[in-house]
Write a protein that binds this DNA or RNA. Structure first.
Lengths: 350, 350
DNA sequence: AGCCGCGATGTGACCGGTCACATCGACTCC
DNA sequence: GGAGTCGATGTGACCGGTCACATCGCGGCT
């Protein structure tokens, strides 16, 4: 790729074009020569500067088209001091919430002509966090979106040096003690709605299987608790599960063993799947014997058997909002909403 | 970020360090001054060149540590001619197979110190493909992995100029008429195994719900067909579905309406979910009345009710193999394997 | 008429790495 | 003992954009 620049050697427009049509990939100076302007004017056109006469802009655009010019992102990043792109830091790319945020970021970034990078932090270990922060400390990294739904993401957010332009997608309420722009879906009220929905069906109380959370009590959990207290219902002990199906299944088994359990609010849909399985194995029907509610509304939830009652979380919009916050003004997000389907029913027992 | 270089102004090691400890982010020339070597030697250390004496290397490393030096990826990409990273081109980031490949690429790339970019092609429209190819035509893009499971990805692969270093993750068998390195999971035999498994359970024949495929007949489909022919069973017409649950559900309804259907091989697990739902709505039990088999083995499949018999596809390994192919030698991939669970059973009807 | 202001454009240095080639010293070989 | 060789290191140009600042031309104002 080491080549010689034609600048200063071209005698005129004709020469410039023939040189540009050679093997070398054209650069702004070639475009400038063909259009009969300076390289700086070409740069201005590339950056949509308003200080270019329409006629000149047209000339430059035609030259770019003729030469099949493609801007070099690396050179731009170097000159600019930082890349014109967004790096998404996440602890996972496959789980529904995380993947959806990534999807939203990509959509929004692509529309604005920004590149998208992905960096996974596998755990909250000091070493992992340090390596990730080091990676992001390169000033040419550009803007960053940290998906801080869990300790790994939160750890990166806390350790990030001040100079890095960042927005975090967090759990509802944000992260305590972090002075960074944070955006989140507030499902607290929806969790309360779900709990009230179950109580309204005649359940004496509602149990909760919690998924990992950075805060001591997630919004899902506090919405649930408040609705129970408000209704004067007993607040059962929270059962905790991890992200994996196995631990959710184990949590489900514990609840299935207790005959007084008739309603369960699960931390997410994946958890609900495993809990439902555990209930099935214990011979308890859903929703005949036990009602369950999930969180997220994964694409297949409506096609479960029975179809899952859950809270719809628009993580894609969350991702888009993060990009908006990084490049301008973040729009307000719609609040998550309970979607009632078939996995919840009235208590049938005497 | 516009700053002045200290090169040529530093009088000695002491000066160099104090200058470097100033506000400016250090560059290799600062590290060189502190270590008492040339900037080129620092560059060699960064690139693990064997031509550096261990003692010298040690000196440079200490200087980097002391100055908290972070290499600038943009500058490196510019000098090198291309970025030291991998861009994943995919039509989706949320569907299981696509997300898994991305995960695998990220894992492998991170280990090698490569950056990972994501670019979504939403459709196979000329405009979308053109924009994506243009994006990738920037020489500073670096290496590319195209996830070509569908027409959109395949379109990009076909339109990509020759100079771009690329590897494609494709359907089994690769893409006809494409002269590019292609890597894939060959599930043909597993599809045949699944079909034989069902026939062995006493089913007269097996129906197939196909998901979108770039080839006229996917490996899943041909493995299925061959196993049927081999056993002398009738080959029913293939029912096609899209990626969305709705179309899979519709396909399921058509099959559920036919009382002779007792075994269905679904194009993937998501499809199986919707098909199972359609069977349920028609009052047909799984696996009592109808046996179903999926493809992929999504994380929750073992926790379905009934647990899904499916073919395990290691897409993460596929992603890792793509990176390996781009940076060295691609390892052989394990063949997909049928995992028998609860959704398949013997025919009980008289 | 002459001066000023301002929009449009041009000039040259600069971002922070890498590359090609020069240099230097020790060691081998005849 | 002098020339040749080779490994380790240094020097300066270069990658392709952007930035700060200079310049140019033209209309309005006194």
């Amino acid at each position: 790729m080491r080549t010689t620049s034609a600048v200063g050697q071209t005698g005129g427009v004709g020469d410039a074009e023939s040189a540009a049509e050679g093997r070398r990939t054209p650069q702004i100076r070639d475009v400038a020569a063909v259009a009969g302007v300076s390289h700086q004017t070409v740069s201005r056109v590339l950056n949509n500067s308003p200080k270019v006469r329409p006629a000149t802009r047209q000339l430059v655009m035609e030259a770019m088209e003729r030469l099949q010019y493609r801007p070099n992102r690396a050179a731009r990043a170097l000159g600019l001091g930082r890349a014109n792109g967004i790096t998404v830091v996440t602890s996972n790319t496959m789980l529904y919430g995380y993947a959806s945020v990534l999807q939203g970021v990509e959509e929004a970034a692509r529309v604005q002509g920004l590149t998208v990078g992905v960096r996974v932090v596998e755990s909250e270990s000091t070493e992992e966090v340090r390596a990730t922060v080091e990676y992001l400390s390169d000033p040419s990294t550009g803007r960053v979106v940290v998906v801080a739904f869990d300790p790994a993401g939160a750890g990166v957010l806390r350790a990030l040096p001040g100079g890095v332009p960042v927005v975090a997608a967090t759990e509802a309420g944000g992260l305590a003690g972090v002075e960074r722009p944070m955006i989140f879906l507030d499902e607290r009220e929806a969790a309360a709605d779900a709990t009230r929905h179950l109580l309204g069906l005649g359940h004496v109380t509602v149990h909760h299987v919690a998924i990992p959370s950075e805060a001591p009590a997630s919004a899902r959990q506090s919405g649930w608790r408040d609705a129970l207290l408000e209704a004067g219902a007993a607040v059962p002990e929270v059962v905790s599960a991890g992200w994996d199906a196995r631990s959710a299944h184990e949590a489900g088994r514990r609840l299935a063993a207790d005959p007084t359990v008739t309603a369960i609010l699960c931390g997410n849909d994946d958890t609900a799947l495993a809990v439902r399985r555990a209930l099935y194995e214990a011979g308890r029907d859903v929703p005949g014997d036990v009602s369950i509610v999930g969180f997220d509304d994964v694409p297949g939830a409506a096609y479960w058997t029975p179809a899952l009652t859950t809270v719809r979380m628009d993580f894609v919009a969350l991702g888009r909002a993060c990009v908006a916050a990084l490049t301008g003004e973040a729009p307000p997000l719609d609040a998550p909403r309970l979607v009632v389907r078939e996995s919840t029913a009235s208590v049938t027992k005497p």
